[in-house]
């Protein structure tokens, strides 16, 4: 009975640690979006500000 309980705790602990490791790996190694392929920034001229 006690051995089964310890096994349950051990498996739960392992599952949590594995889950956290996976989540951390996904978060740290996740990729951003795709940057724009066209376009660019242009400073506004004085006549565009007024």
């Amino acid at each position: 009975m006690a051995a089964g309980f310890i096994t349950l705790i051990r498996r739960t602990f392992v599952a949590i640690v594995v889950g956290m490791a996976l989540a951390a790996a996904i978060r740290v190694r996740g990729r951003g979006g795709v940057p724009p392929q066209t376009g660019g920034w242009r400073e506004l001229r004085d006549d565009e500000l007024a």
Partner: peptide, 24 residues
Amino acid sequence: PDRLLSAIAALGLRPSRFEGFALT
């Protein structure tokens, strides 16, 4: 607001606009 933005630009903080075409 236009006049304020001009004053801000005159102090060196000039705004930009993203254009939908490549400028390279």
